[in-house]
Amino acid sequence: MITRDDILKIAKLSKLSIEDEEIEALTKDMAEIIQFADTINTAVEDENMEFDNISNIINAFHEDEVIESFDSDLILKNRDGGEDGYFLVKRRSVN
C-alpha cells in the first residue's frame, strides 16, 4: 500500500518539490508501478535466477597500472567558483 507519506519521502530523497494537489495522482501512479513490478515477480519461477546480469559478461577488470591523470585545467574547466585547484561547494541559497 503506497501512502501519502511514502510519496513525500521519495520526493524528499529525490530532491523534488511537489505541490499538494499532485500528491494524490502520484500516489495512484506509484501504486500502479509497484503493482506492475509485483506482476512480473509472480512470473518468476526460479527465485535464484539472476536477472541482473543478462549480458552474461563477467570479470571485466582493469590492470593495476597507472595511466597519467588528466590535466587539472581540464578537470576544473567547468567549475563554478573555487580557487587554488579546488572545486567550490555552492552555498545553499536561502529563500
Partner: peptide
C-alpha cells in the same frame, strides 16, 4: 599531491 591532479572523468 596538488588538489584535483590525480583525477580523470571517471573519478569526478
Amino acid at each position: 599531491g596538488e588538489p584535483n591532479t590525480h583525477c580523470c572523468p571517471i573519478c569526478i
